[in-house]
């Protein structure tokens, strides 16, 4: 009897120890659970819709760009009402589409800046001469006192007309005074077409493309045949800024020199300024000379993106093809 008791006590202590250990295991379970939940939380991506707010804004910009291009081309007498109708339509349909994903979007037309467009879209191309200027002097002023330019595109349809030397090459210049001139020269070496740029501070660069098919130069976007041209954007990495009009303060004039040394089409949209009256006719149906029409330079739209977790309300100004 006396021997039994110690064993009894030992048993009870073991039981209590076992029970307390079990409680510790459960506390450990809480800790392990939290660790696993943390891993789960870490693998969650972003808040649903947060990056969509920005990517959809980009898509809205592109849609408004198309609306403006349509209005400037087909509804140039009243581009504002055309763009307004387009923006309403794409807002309604876009909202309908995005609503199925739980996102509320709204695009509203707020305002615009008017401008004008100069273009020469003769099929097959024509020389960039001014019909009313004497043939011996093909240097003429395209526009005067322009604030900004966008969507400046030149298409060379016939490379054989290009000059063989840089000195007598076709030149397009942005000119504020004798010391602030930005020049673009187009000439050909026989096998290659050279796009040569010289900024107001004297920096120069060039891009070359092989001859053969029509060459499309998007001056304000910095592209030659769809590829980035460093002479129109930036010379080398971290190099000098070469964009259209670098070093030339606005308002500036736009001049064409040696207009007979090129054959093709061109188009540009300008803000501010006027044409000097010679050689520019109103409306595209008036002849093959460069013509001018009214155009929308930039549009401002209100953009609203909302989900249950994200709110983003802003105003976007769309001026496609403008130099950065």
């Amino acid at each position: 009897m006396a021997d039994l008791r110690p064993r009894d006590e030992r048993g009870q202590i073991l039981l209590i120890a076992a029970f307390t250990l079990a409680v510790i295991f459960v506390a450990l379970a809480l800790v392990v659970n939290s660790a696993i939940f943390t891993e789960n939380l870490a693998s969650q991506g972003e808040v649903a819709g947060s990056s969509e707010a920005l990517t959809y804004q980009h898509q809205v910009r592109q849609s408004v760009t198309e609306a403006m291009a349509y209005a400037n081309r087909y509804r140039y007498s009243n581009p504002t009402s055309s763009v307004q109708a387009s923006v309403d339509a794409l807002s309604e349909q876009g909202a309908h589409q995005q609503a199925t994903g739980g996102q509320l979007v709204h695009v509203g037309y707020e305002g615009s800046r008017s401008g004008w467009r100069i273009a020469d879209n003769t099929s097959g191309g024509s020389t960039f001469e001014n019909e009313s200027v004497p043939v011996s002097d093909q240097n003429w002023q395209l526009a005067e006192s322009v604030d900004r330019t966008r969507d400046l595109e030149i298409t060379i349809t016939d490379e054989s007309v290009l000059s063989g030397t840089k000195a007598s090459a076709f030149t397009l210049e942005a000119n504020e005074s004798t010391s602030e001139i930005w020049e673009l020269r187009l000439w050909s070496t026989g096998g290659e077409v050279v796009v040569d740029v010289e900024t107001a501070s004297g920096r120069s660069g060039e891009c070359r493309v092989p001859t053969g098919s029509p060459v499309e130069i998007d001056v304000t976007r910095g592209l030659v045949d769809g590829q980035r041209c460093h002479a129109l954007t930036r010379n080398g990495t971290g190099g000098d800024r070469m964009w259209w009009g670098t070093g030339v303060s606005s308002p500036y004039d736009i001049w064409i020199k040696n207009g007979d040394q090129i054959r093709g089409n061109y188009s540009m949209i300008l803000r501010g300024g006027s044409h000097t009256g010679d050689g520019l006719v109103d409306g595209p149906d008036s002849g093959d000379d460069p013509f001018r029409t009214d155009a929308m330079y930039s549009a401002t739209v209100e953009y609203l993106f909302r989900t249950s977790q994200v709110t983003y309300e802003t105003e976007i100004e769309v001026a496609p093809g403008e130099t950065p």
Binding site: L54, Q57, Q309, V310, E313, T314
Partner: peptide, 28 residues
């Protein structure tokens, strides 16, 4: 940083906010 990107994307920002629900307690 996403809200920062919203603010940098345009010149005029009327409102920008992101909300997310986290557990109200961490391991008790």
């Amino acid at each position: 940083e996403q809200v920062e990107r919203y603010a940098n994307a345009t010149d005029i920002v009327r409102s920008a906010s992101i909300e997310q629900t986290f557990p109200s307690r961490v391991t008790g």
